[in-house]
């Protein structure tokens, strides 16, 4: 009876150790939850908004191209005018100061 009482806590401790032991020793790989950071969302919206604006104002590029062509024209016209100034009043002025 006394022996049984003495052994009882020892058995309990051994039992607990057997239960907890493997759990404590087994390797655990903790996987952090995937976090969508707000900065990525903002960046994504920026790209989408930029795309919307680019698409909407696409006509500006089309209309800007002929304007750019006309701004570069005088330079070529002037060089051409040095050889032939008949049809160009600016060229004629340049030829006869």
């Amino acid at each position: 009876m006394n022996i049984a009482r003495r052994i009882e806590p020892v058995v309990a401790v051994i039992g607990l150790a057997l239960i907890i032991g493997p759990a404590a020793c087994s390797p655990r790989v903790r996987v952090d939850p995937i976090e969508v950071k707000p900065i990525h969302i903002v960046h994504d919206i920026n790209i989408r908004v930029d795309k919307q604006l680019e698409d909407f104002f696409a006509f500006q590029d089309k209309s800007a191209t002929p304007a750019a062509a006309t701004t570069t024209q005088p330079a070529t016209a002037q060089t051409a005018s040095s050889s032939n100034t008949a049809g160009d009043p600016n060229g004629a002025q340049g030829a006869k100061p």
């Binding site: 919206i45 920026n46 989408r48 908004v49 930029d50 919307q52 604006l53």
Partner: peptide, 14 residues
């Protein structure tokens, strides 16, 4: 409205 953001944000991008 289309992109689920604010007018100010679109204005800033423009």
């Amino acid at each position: 409205k289309k992109e689920g953001t604010t007018r100010e944000m679109v204005a800033e991008r423009n």
